[in-house]
Nucleic acid binder design. Structure first.
Length: 859
DNA sequence: GCAAGGTC
């Protein structure tokens, strides 16, 4: 059997290109987590079976172990020294399993990951999954390629190298530093400010080495605008009449800031009264055609000309790419590889009704190669692939596609040529001028008309001409502040300062919008909110480094030492984290300074909200703060009680919680089939239990997510992960002892307890009860309400959907006779010896029954 | 619930 060679690319499309190039299109494709292309071919002189597949970006992502996931119990400072774990980024895709399976039986592995640091890091993720590192005799190769053309792929196959561990480690370092710094600061400031002010409407107050400097740019501009002091200025406008029309001349000094000086110059000019043409220049200028389109430029144009935000642009571009209309949309490069086939790209556009003619003439008369740009070694510039029309793509995607086409055609068009004429006039020692423009060759501007040169004709002048000045006006103006940063300006700043990458710039901008730090206003300009501004001003007064772009470049520079093999990975990480931990600790100490700014900006809880329900501690009414996060604030106790979000809240039957005397509330979820449930604000905010034995084993903190399917719905009411409170339809009935109201203990699951709010009687229900409701039946013995209990299938020997009807909680003997199941079988064994006259105990005491399952009180 | 980076 032929030896097997496995090849792994970063994304399915590259795997396909590689397989097609190496097999000449003669391969078979197997579906899997990602497609596997198989074919036979030569490798180092031997006939082998190739398998080409891919990952989908990073296989793993980094996080903290579960122990550190609880915000309440983890000091963010400890995160700097915490261990980290890597888990599959997308467990559902089963990439790890896929690679492991495909690697079986393969003696050679060729890594075709993108040729950048991230790609190098993914190489080692692939190595880990494939088991290639552990097995002796298996060969690992790294293909280095700058494009996925057949030529480049074959060249890479002839020059296989080894993966670069240092570059991979540099990425590991960045991941760990970003995680620890971001999460520590985010948790601290979120917990500090969250709920502290009434009109502070953000649930998460995040911090990150990319998003925060991005916000910093927007706020910096905002501060320039708000602190701007307009200044008066004056300028001279000279007018002449020539060839029958009036022409305004510009003043060489542009403007002066002293009115008397302006008047003096005006006098000098009017006293002279004659303009002499002192200089006349005429030269041909070139406006060069564009170079290839990269992601950043696409985002800028889409925002400024098409009105699409970066997030939307990337979504549209992604769709156009997966449908084969454009090439890969995440690229830094503006230069095409030398072997690029421009002709076939143009061929695909021949039938376009808008630019087909232009393309035809370019193909017939020869076209230019694009202006040389920069080759980042990642992917070629964004280029149209298949031809399309508006009906195929839909309005927005069509606009973006159209731009990509126009830009591409522009890159292969001639440059635009124009003649610029400048006439200079001297008068009274001052110089005035006017400029004319005449286009001689439209070049690429015919397909990109928004870049066209506007023509301006001038009358004919000759050097030495003397012209009488009819009037010289003084124009008075005010200097004006700059406008808010446009998205396009911000993208430029981010690119210039190395914030984010082609793939992540849009995410950072989206982040600061979603976190309510900035708002997109007309013309896609970014206006910081009070929260955004206050945060940045806060960093500026505690530690300005925290919001400067240098914080990113510092990390990049440090990890570059690792990538170049100049420094040890763990020492660099340790050094960086030590510095950030120091910054963190200083920030925590100084947070009061930031809080002072918040206090000035936001209203205190005592000033906001309306009175809603009574506090169980001081019995006074607490305030309901409707701004997110919605919460109650007790002005007397100065305590905050968070409420479930995204719904409405009102008093619940004026009942109080038996555990803490807080008034119960009724929460109704939003939406058409909104559910409602009662809750106690105090219990809802109580810390969760740890180590409790549940239906699902011993429970640890942070386990609630793991319970997953089959565990039923988690509780909306309390933080207890196994509480099934949300499923209770009616949790109250009459107490058999005193006819008071029985209320479910909100934190007692899975052992439901009923409390009586009058006599403090406690009644335990059988374990596993997960839904409790009152019925309209009455106990014949004592006239108490009969309640109904549903059991979870996991917790009882009952069949699915079984229901246990329980009789009167007090009168034991009735219990037996009332037991029935929906599926016809009895849950309780029929036994003798129980009957009237048994002890009618109350409370927690364990009864002496033959069968412990028999009595509620035995649980 | 938190970062930034891949990719879909």
């Amino acid at each position: 059997m032929a030896p097997k060679v496995l090849m792994v690319a970063e994304k399915p499309s590259i795997a396909l290109s590689i397989a097609t190039a190496l097999s000449g299109g003669r391969m078979s494709t197997r579906r899997g987590s990602t497609d596997v292309h198989q074919f036979e071919g030569k490798f180092r002189g031997f006939l082998v079976e190739y398998r080409v597949t891919s990952v989908i970006g990073h296989v793993f992502s980094i996080d903290f172990p579960p122990k550190y996931q609880n915000w309440e119990l983890t000091d963010p400072m400890d995160l700097f020294d915490a261990p980290t774990i890597k888990s599959e980024s997308n467990p559902k895709a089963h990439i790890r399993r896929h690679l492991h399976q495909e690697a079986r039986g393969c003696g050679h592995l060729i890594l075709w990951l993108d040729c950048d640091r991230e790609g190098e890091n993914i190489c080692y993720e692939v190595l880990e999954c494939s088991g290639f590192l552990e097995t002796e005799g298996k060969k690992i190769y790294r293909a280095r390629f700058s494009s996925v053309t057949e030529k480049d792929i074959l060249k890479a196959m002839d020059n296989l190298a080894a993966p670069n561990k240092d570059e991979a480690l540099a990425v590991d370092a960045r991941q760990e530093i970003d995680l620890k710094v971001g999460v520590a600061f985010t948790r601290f400031q979120t917990r500090f400010f969250q709920g502290r002010y009434g009109n502070l409407d953000s649930r998460i107050i995040s911090y990150g080495p990319c998003q925060t400097p991005t916000l910093g740019f927007c706020v910096q501009r905002h501060l320039q605008i708000t602190t701007f002091k307009p200044e008066k200025f004056w300028s001279l406008n000279a007018y002449i009449f020539k060839d029958g029309y009036e022409l305004q001349l510009d003043w060489d000094r542009n403007k002066v800031f002293d009115f008397d000086v302006a008047v003096m110059f005006q006098k000098l000019v009017t006293d002279d009264g004659i303009l002499k043409i002192s200089n006349l220049s005429k030269k041909e200028e070139t406006k060069t055609r564009p170079c290839g389109l990269n992601t950043v430029n696409l985002l800028k144009v889409a925002s400024s000309s098409l009105g699409f935000g970066p997030q939307m642009t990337m979504q549209l571009a992604e769709r156009l790419y997966t449908q084969g209309f454009i090439s890969y949309p995440r690229t830094e490069s503006t230069a095409y590889p030398s072997s690029f086939d421009f002709r076939s790209v143009l061929d695909a556009q021949l039938n376009n009704p808008l630019w087909g003619d232009l393309v035809r003439s370019l193909l017939a008369n020869g076209f230019h190669k694009p202006r040389s740009g920069s080759d980042a070694g990642d992917h070629p510039p964004i280029t149209p692939m298949r031809s399309a029309n508006e009906d195929m793509l839909g309005n927005d995607a069509w606009k973006l596609y159209q731009y990509v086409c126009q830009h591409f055609i522009g890159t292969v068009c001639p440059d635009c040529k124009h003649i610029r004429t400048k006439v200079e006039f001297a008068c009274g020692g001052e110089i005035f001028y006017c400029v004319g423009q005449q286009v001689t060759a439209k070049g690429f501007t015919s397909i990109m008309p928004w870049l066209a040169i506007s023509e301006k004709k001038l009358p004919s002048f000759s050097k030495g001409d003397r012209i009488k000045i009819p009037k010289v006006d003084i124009y008075e103006g005010n200097t004006s502040p700059p406008d808010y940063l446009s998205e396009s300006d911000l993208i430029s700043l981010m690119e210039k300062n190395g914030i984010g990458t082609d793939a992540s710039i849009s995410v950072h901008i989206n982040n600061i919008c979603e976190r309510n730090y900035v708002q997109v206003t007309s013309g896609r300009r970014l206006t910081p909110t009070a929260l955004g501004t206050t945060l940045i001003r806060g960093y500026q007064c505690i530690d300005p480094d925290l919001c400067l772009p240098e914080i990113r470049s510092f990390i990049e520079q440090q990890i570059t030492f690792i990538a170049k093999g100049e420094a040890d990975h763990s020492r660099v990480v340790e050094h960086c984290l030590q510095q950030f931990a120091q910054k963190y600790s200083y920030f925590v100490k100084q947070i009061e300074n930031m809080d002072a700014l918040f206090e000035a900006q936001f209203s205190s809880l005592a000033q906001s909200g309306r009175l809603l329900s009574k506090c169980g501690k001081c019995t006074r009414y607490m305030k309901y703060i409707p701004n997110q996060p919605t919460r109650l604030y007790c002005v007397t106790c100065e305590e905050v009680y968070y409420l479930p979000q995204n719904g409405t809240i009102k008093l619940y039957k004026e009942l109080t919680c038996p555990l803490d005397s807080f008034e119960l509330l009724l929460f109704s979820m939003a939406g058409p089939d909104a559910k409602s449930f009662p809750l106690c604000p105090y219990c809802y905010n109580s810390p969760p239990f740890e180590g409790i034995e549940t239906l699902f084993g011993s429970l640890k903190l942070g386990d609630s997510k793991k319970l997953g399917k089959g565990a039923g719905m988690p509780c909306f009411l309390c933080p207890h992960p196994t509480c099934r409170h949300s499923m209770i339809t009616q949790g109250v009935c009459a107490c058999p002892e005193c006819n008071g109201t029985l209320i479910l203990d909100p934190v007692s699951a899975p052992k439901w307890r009923l409390y009586c709010n009058m006599c403090n009687c406690i009644i335990f229900l059988p374990e596993g009860a997960h839904r409790i409701s009152t019925t309209d039946k009455k106990c014949s013995e004592c006239d108490s309400t009969i309640i109904e209990v549903d059991f979870n299938k996991k917790s009882t020997p009952l069949k699915d959907g079984a229901t246990l009807h329980i009789g009167c909680i007090l009168c034991d003997e009735l219990l037996h006779s009332l037991v029935e199941m929906k599926h016809g079988k009895s849950f309780f064994k029929r036994r003798g010896g129980r009957g009237r006259g048994r002890r009618r105990g109350r409370g927690r005491g364990r009864g002496k029954n033959d069968d412990p399952k028999m009595s509620f009180r035995d649980f």
